[in-house]
Amino acid sequence: MTKIKSLAELKLKKEELEKKLNLREKSNEPDKYIQIKVGMATSGIASGAKVVMDFLIEELNKRGIDAVVTQTGDMGYCYAEPTIEVKRPGEDPIVFGYVDLKKADEIIEKYLKNGELVEGIIPVNYESIDE
């Protein structure tokens, strides 16, 4: 370890290190962030949910959007896999079906950035996937 020689260096060090704790910080106060749940049951994984999840995590990170991405079991929409549920802070969750990479990209650009709805919404009559 090299010595930290000033408050300025300490601040830089913090900025560098805090990225690694980002996941924990955000999940500590999930309601402050966009929360995305990816359906990852067997049918979901087979239909590419994992790829979509990796894509979301990676791209949100790159595009500087703070979000908590979690996986969840079967969402009950096997026919529309992969499905994701998106909840913007203070809003009701929305479920999207048939999410491929292109759709995921569209959701990030339109819905997450501007709140613009995109096609593929599955009507829901419950609060959230696992509650």
């Binding site: 290190l17 690694k20 704790l21």
Partner: peptide, 19 residues
Amino acid sequence: VDEYLARDGYQALGKVLSE
């Protein structure tokens, strides 16, 4: 210690000593 530093660790000490 890096996880402590990531959560503002030793910032208070730095602030007190420097400012």
